[in-house]
Design a protein around this nucleic acid. Structure first.
Lengths: 213, 213
DNA sequence: AGCGCTATGCGATCATGTTCGCATAGATGC
DNA sequence: GCATCTATGCGAACATGATCGCATAGCGCT
């Protein structure tokens, strides 16, 4: 593992070689994930494309799922950039939330496979991978909470709600729709509609009596 | 596969033997899942306990995950029985929903492993398994929708809400909390609280203006 | 140059879910 | 009773993610 201990010379030739190898591995993995999907992208194939033996990959990565997490982190970054580029803090909170899910969905829809496997990664015994996947989720939940909080201080939302709980509910509602979509039970449009419906529902609430404590 | 073609004699000795084998396999699988967890319950170990070779299992089951689905279906049944036993249709809808999640959680808490793997099963390439796992989810969503619908006709709920959307939101909210719990990020109590909070939130709604269309 | 040390790489090997070809036993038809 | 068919079972083999022990190379130190 390259990340441990003191590293006096960052220009150590070996470390540079390692960094280049890591880059090649990630590139190969990304390409193969997109070409064949996660499961069909064999470690041996990734290794071959990266120009090395399969076992060498484990010098740089703890498991195949870790490669996935790296890829997911990048996708998340991309979705966020796109969202932030167009986002205005003054927009109605509900709109902002909807826009966010739109951006996210735009990206995930291009990689249905990864969407599903991301969820799978969350269920793996290797707690390293699972918690990193969950951390990604938490980041998204955090962003949603931030949006909601903005709305709350602006008086856009019921001040009594816990924004974190709400953000979680929104997030997992979206996940649920995407699982169905990724399994072919929902068309892409229906998935988007389902997410919108969930947002709508959360804003309106189920109860008849509105602000009854 | 035993389920195909005509079966003139249901007392066919071979079929009986097959049925007994299936029963042994399921019993062995259940025991080992609980003793060691799904991943650590090797197919070869299951086979050994069932008194047969590993490959023979595949005469009765399409994959290891199918054994899981069988087990999950049984757990679901158990949770429902318990819920129905104590449920009264006249109770407040929110209470009923909370009680349902309580029963479900009681059971799942005894099998944290299965909780997680059930989600994983939902992400599997073998669409047979994935859709069966999803079907179980849909059943639960259906029950929740039924509860909500009962509340709606009784005037307990805002008549404008789509009970199915709401049921899904509730269900996936619970799933989200359980994923965190199963990964050790949430204590069991915190998981229950999180689910309750989600229910609470859904009933109250985020928006400030209550019944605005 | 020589000696350790560490990062990297590799082939053999393992564990495990799954598939395959073959064997057996029970049923059916003649 | 024999041929045939089918449900069941088995051991060998396969694919693949992961591990292990050993080799190599680049670095620092003397």
């Amino acid at each position: 593992m390259a990340a441990s201990g003191a590293r006096p010379r960052p220009d150590d030739g070996r470390l540079l070689r390692g960094a280049r190898s890591r880059a090649r591995i990630r590139e190969a993995a990304r390409a193969l994930f997109r070409e064949r999907g996660f499961d069909a992208a064999t470690l041996r194939a990734i290794a071959a494309r990266a120009g090395m033996g399969a076992s060498s990959i484990y010098r740089h990565v703890r498991s195949k799922h870790e490669l996935l997490v790296l890829e997911l982190a990048e996708l998340q970054e991309e979705a966020w950039r796109e969202f932030r580029r167009r986002d205005a803090r003054t927009t109605a909170t509900r709109e902002r939330v909807l826009r966010f899910f739109e951006r996210q969905h735009e990206l995930l829809a291009r990689h249905p496979d990864l969407t599903v496997i991301a969820i799978r990664a969350t269920t793996y015994p290797d707690s390293r991978v699972a918690s990193r996947a969950l951390a990604l989720n938490d980041r998204t939940i955090g962003l949603l909470a931030e949006i909601l909080q903005g709305g709350r201080v602006r008086g856009d939302l019921d001040p009594g709600v816990d924004v974190l709980v709400a953000a979680r509910a929104l997030f997992y509602g979206a996940i649920g729709a995407r699982i169905s979509w990724a399994n072919g039970l929902l068309s892409e449009g229906a998935c988007r509609t389902a997410i919108e419906d969930t947002v709508e529902l959360l804003f309106r609430g189920l109860g008849r009596a509105p602000a009854s404590p």
